[in-house]
Simulated assay, not measured.
Amino acid sequence: MSVAPSFQANAHPVDPFGIIAPQLAALDAFMKAQAAQFEPEIRDMAGYCLEASGKRLRPALVFFSGWEFGGRVDESLVRAAAVVEMVHLATLVHDDIMDRAELRRGRLTASRKFGPDAAVLLGDALFSQALHIASQFPTAEVCRLVSASTRRVCSGEIMQTLRRRDFNVTLADYRRMIDLKTAELFRTSCYLGAMLSHQTSGFADAADKFGHHLGIAYQIYDDLVDFVGEEKNIGKTLGTDLATGKLTLPLMLLLDRIPVDERARLIADMREGHSPGLATSQQRMHQLGIGAAVVQSINDELSIALESILPFSSAPAAPLLKELASLLSRQVASLPTSVVSPA
C-alpha cells in the first residue's frame, strides 16, 4: 500500500467548521424544531437532548462530503445531517446510562436529569424520530442506509455491553466493536453527503472509506481521552471506561504490558467494581509507552483515511475532509505530553 500524504497540522490551519457555519446553523434550527414533533408529555425531555450541541462531527461529515463550490445550504443535506445526529444522540443517551456518566457536553446527562428508566425510552424515541425523518426522503435509499447503520451501531453497543469486564477481549474484537459503534455512523454520514449531492463518480465510495477510518481514529482518540483528558476541558465524565471495566485500546495495552502479578491484581479489582484511579493509570501508561502507541494507531488510521480520497483531490469536498483529519491530528497532538509522549 502506498504511503498517504502527511496529515500534520498546516502552518495556517483552517477551521473547517467555520466554513460550514451556515449549514450548521440550519441544522441547529431544524433540530430545535424537531422537539415539537414529540408528544407534549416528553417534548421538554426531547428538547433537552436535541439542544445539546456538541462537535456535530457526524452532521459535519454529511456537509463536508456533500460540499459544492459556492457552499449553498442544501435542505436535503440538512435533513440527512439531522438524521445521523439524532441517531448519535440516542446512542449517547443509552451510553451514559450504562456508563453511569454524570456529564455530557458540559451538562447533566439525560439519565442523571430524568432518571435511567425514562432515559432508556427517551433514547428509543430519538431513534424512532430519526428513522421517521429518513423515511420522508423521495428515495428509499436514505432510510435503508440509516436503518441498517442504526442496527449496526446498536449491535456494537450490545457487544461492548456484554463484554464489560471480559478480559479475554482481543484486538480484533475491539476493532469489530468500534467498527460498528462509531465508524459505522461516520461512514454512513460521508456516503450520504456524497450521494445526495451527486458528487464525482466513485467519490461516494471513497468518502465512505474515509469516514470509516476517520471514525476508527476518532474512537481510539476518545478512548485515550478517557484516560488522559481533563474533564473541565472535555465537558464529560472521564474515567468511565476504567471504572466500568470496558476494554479499550489503552486499557488492553496496559494489561498486556504490566507484570503478570500486577495484571492479576488489576483484573481482580475491576471485576469487583474497583479501579486504581486515573492518576495511577496515567503514570503506568507513560512508564510503559502506552499513550505513544495509541497515538500511533490513531495516526495510522488517519493515513488510510487520507489515502482513500487522494485520487479525488480535485473534488470540492476533498479539502474539507482533509482539513477535518488534520484537525483531529492537532487534537491528538494537544494531549498531555506527560502521558502520550514516549517514556
Rank of each mutant, 00 (worst) to 15 (best):
A4F: 12
P16F: 10
G18T: 05
G18H: 12
I19E: 08
I19Y: 13
I20V: 15
I20T: 11
A21V: 00
Q23Y: 07
A25G: 06
A25I: 03
D28C: 01
A29N: 09
A35T: 08
Q37E: 13
E39Q: 11
E39N: 02
I42G: 05
M45H: 11
A46G: 08
L50M: 13
K55L: 06
W67R: 02
W67N: 01
G70Q: 04
G70C: 03
D74I: 02
E75S: 13
S76R: 15
V78D: 14
D96H: 12
D99S: 09
R107N: 11
S111K: 07
S111F: 09
K113A: 13
K113S: 05
D117P: 00
G123L: 10
Q129K: 14
L131N: 01
A134C: 02
F137W: 10
A140W: 05
T150K: 06
C154T: 15
S155W: 14
I158K: 03
I158P: 01
R164H: 04
Y174L: 15
R176M: 14
I178T: 12
T188E: 07
C190N: 14
Y191E: 10
A194D: 10
H198W: 02
G202Y: 12
A207E: 04
H212T: 11
I216L: 15
D222A: 04
L224H: 10
D226F: 10
K232H: 10
N233W: 01
G235E: 09
K236C: 06
L238I: 12
G239N: 06
D241P: 02
T244R: 13
T248E: 12
R257P: 00
A264P: 00
A264G: 00
A264K: 11
M270A: 04
H274E: 09
H274V: 01
H274W: 07
S275I: 06
T280R: 13
S281C: 15
S281G: 06
Q283I: 00
L288M: 11
A292Y: 11
V295L: 08
Q296S: 13
N299W: 13
L302T: 05
A305Y: 10
L306W: 12
L320K: 07
L320A: 06
L321V: 07
L321Y: 09
L324C: 14
S326R: 15
S326D: 01
Q331G: 01
S334E: 15
V340Y: 07
A343C: 03
